[in-house]
């Protein structure tokens, strides 16, 4: 059974019409589902409040309720639909977003920014808790281009700010191209004692002539000679932490990829490390090698292996 409508509105039977209206308005502000889309209980509360108000707003129905002629369920409104039930639909044309790229969580927003925003709001605990109004300062945005190896291995660099001062920036290990670093409290000063904003530094990583990156893995193309390919052997390969020895298996081909475990990019804090993937590429010796040519001329006479046979069949043309 529904509750006493007076109790629902926080009133007694002696409440005036004006008190009823005021109490209702106050409760609507705190319980309207469309004004509190994240509150799952709002709808039930609002329904009770609206039903109570419906009953008591009209002096006639109120008098009948007071006299016991109708009970509080008598005037319950039919179930209605709330705007919030539709508002979340992705095709809802009423949604509006701020200009792209100007804060907000617009379509192009970096998810990392969203997280940072959420965490920052939480840690600051909202502005103005101390009574008077204060607000955090605006964020300052910079871009920074760093060499590939510095991004991969981490390091420290300095950027010069428009006002001539400079700022130390720690580059975390494994920083990716386009990543944004946040230096807390290094933005514009806050208002009225509010905390300073953050410096947001978008990092661009300059490509490297030898190393490429795929997630936490480093990709390298390693040239090998014909004899190394056929006979196998130990060669030296570059890695981001310096040259290491690598064993080429006998009978290697171009395109064959070897994995150097743990020679990729370490992610700060996670302890996990990517690999370096070494793609082999057979390179003929420079110039004309008469001895090799003579040998291969003889060798060819006894060879039946056609590496393209399968391919021509699969092509189906």
């Amino acid at each position: 059974m529904p509750d006493d409508p007076y109790k629902t509105l926080g009133l007694t039977k002696s409440a005036t019409a004006d008190e009823i209206r005021k109490a209702y308005r106050k409760l609507v502000r705190t319980s309207h589902p469309d004004l509190h889309p994240d509150d799952p209980q709002a709808e039930a509360r609002f329904k009770a409040i609206a039903a109570a108000h419906e009953l008591l707003r009209d002096p006639e129905t109120r008098a009948r309720y007071d006299a016991g002629e109708i009970d509080s369920a008598g005037v319950e409104r039919p179930r209605r639909q709330y705007y919030r039930d539709f508002a979340g639909a992705s095709d809802n044309a009423y949604q509006t977003r701020g200009a792209q790229g100007r804060g907000g969580f617009g379509g192009g927003a970096d998810p990392a920014d969203v997280f940072a925003e959420i965490l920052r709001n939480r840690s600051r605990g909202g502005a103005g808790t101390g009574g008077g109004f204060s607000a955090p300062g605006p964020d300052a945005r910079f871009t920074l281009t760093i060499p590939f190896l510095e991004a991969a291995r981490g390091g420290e660099t300095r950027i010069t700010l428009p006002d001539g001062s400079n700022l130390a920036v720690r580059i975390p290990q494994g920083t990716e191209d386009g990543q944004t670093l946040r230096l807390r409290g290094k933005g514009q000063p806050g208002y009225a004692g509010g905390p300073a904003g953050d410096a947001l530094i978008t990092v661009h990583v300059r490509p490297h002539p030898v190393f490429r990156r795929d997630g936490d893995d480093i990709l390298v193309i390693l040239p090998i000679t014909i004899d190394e390919a056929v006979l196998g052997g130990k060669v030296t390969a570059p890695t981001i932490d310096g040259p290491v020895g690598l064993t080429i298996p006998k009978g290697a081909s171009s395109g064959h990829t070897l994995r150097l475990r743990g020679r990729g990019i370490a992610r700060g804090g996670t302890g996990s490390k990517g690999d370096q993937r070494v793609e082999l590429r057979i390179v003929s010796p420079p110039g004309q090698d008469k001895a090799l040519a003579d040998f291969l001329t003889e060798w060819r006479k006894t060879q039946a292996h056609d590496p393209r046979a399968e391919m021509l069949k699969d092509a189906g043309t």
Partner: peptide, 28 residues
């Protein structure tokens, strides 16, 4: 009607609600 917001106030509230719902969708 219930909260007695005039049109000026609605012009403040409605766009904010629309932005709120857009942000909620993005977050979801």
């Amino acid at each position: 009607q219930d909260l007695e917001l005039d049109e000026n106030a609605l012009h403040v509230v409605i766009p904010l609600l629309d932005q709120l719902h857009a942000a909620r969708l993005d977050l979801a």
